[in-house]
């Protein structure tokens, strides 16, 4: 019989995030987003809706952009997770997408930005030559309330065009 984790007992979970291992305990109901923010202290992953529409909580799970509010931490055991905190190099050099968002004014309040960065990183890593229409279609996954999107699109296009991602 497969092991059952009781509802009100926090179970040990190992999360591998940005190459680091976090040994946490979490109730089964704890979402990956909450675990990243509250248990790992990685608060760059934001919560904007908690029902999978806004995309502010987007992280990469084994290279794919996913909504971390729609995953339970226990499901992410064994997976490789990347968050916005892992984008810049260890010496602080910004990732090309971060540079491009800065250069193109692809952010204002910055709340949606981590989600857009991770969405774009996942998209460009799996599809470096993505066409303009597909790129826009993919970026329609997330919501931004400040920029009107144009500068986000331009930032991501510039990274694609430079082949930098």
């Amino acid at each position: 019989m497969t092991e059952i984790s009781a509802a009100d007992v926090a179970v040990p979970v190992v999360l591998r995030v940005n190459g680091d291992e976090y040994r946490i305990t979490a109730e089964p109901r704890r979402t990956l987003a909450d675990a990243l923010r509250d248990d790992c202290g990685l608060t760059g992953t934001h919560l904007g809706c908690e029902h999978g529409v806004c995309g502010a909580c987007t992280v990469l799970l084994d290279g794919e952009p996913v909504r971390s509010c729609l995953l339970f931490a226990v499901q992410a055991q064994d997976a490789g997770i990347r968050t916005v905190e892992g984008l810049a190099a260890a010496d602080g050099t910004l990732h090309p997408l971060q540079e491009a968002f800065w250069r193109h004014h692809g952010l204002q309040c910055g709340f949606c930005t981590p989600g857009f960065l991770m969405l774009s990183a996942g998209m460009l890593e799996s599809c470096p030559d993505i066409g303009d229409d597909e790129l826009r279609e993919a970026l329609s996954s997330n919501l931004c309330r400040c920029t009107g999107y144009q500068t986000i699109v331009e930032a991501v296009q510039s990274v694609r065009d430079a082949g930098e991602a």
Binding site: T2, E3, A7, V11, P28, R29, V74
Partner: peptide, 17 residues
């Protein structure tokens, strides 16, 4: 908007499921 508590199991076979 946090889920209510639930128990959790993740079988690795169809039979276990």
């Amino acid at each position: 908007m946090k889920p209510a508590r639930f128990a959790y199991t993740a079988p690795d076979t169809v039979e276990g499921t």
